[in-house]
Amino acid sequence: MKKDWPLWEVFIRSKSGLSHKHVGSLHATDEVMAIENARDVYTRRNEGVSIWVVESKYITASDPDDSDPFFEPAKDKVYRHPTFYDVPDEIKHM
């Protein structure tokens, strides 16, 4: 009979131009309440200009057991980074 309020994840854009960042979670019965609760809980100190909420159950996360095949292969691809390349000091704007 008793139903708990579902859990939501809250993402806040701290100022215009920045991405939304995960700040925490809260409980709410629907998206309207979730946005308002997020405002009341997570922006009390002027922390944000925009809020996203998503019900926690809709978040899909990568599995820690997949960490090696997922993330290790990117580690040795140094040629993707600008510092990999030698450019003479005289050359500017590159």
Binding site: W5, L26, H27, A28, M33, E36, N37, D40, V41, R44
Partner: peptide, 11 residues
């Protein structure tokens, strides 16, 4: 009645 409401009322 709930923590989130407590905070909203105090705001």
């Amino acid at each position: 009645p709930e923590l989130e409401i407590d905070m909203a009322l105090t705001n």
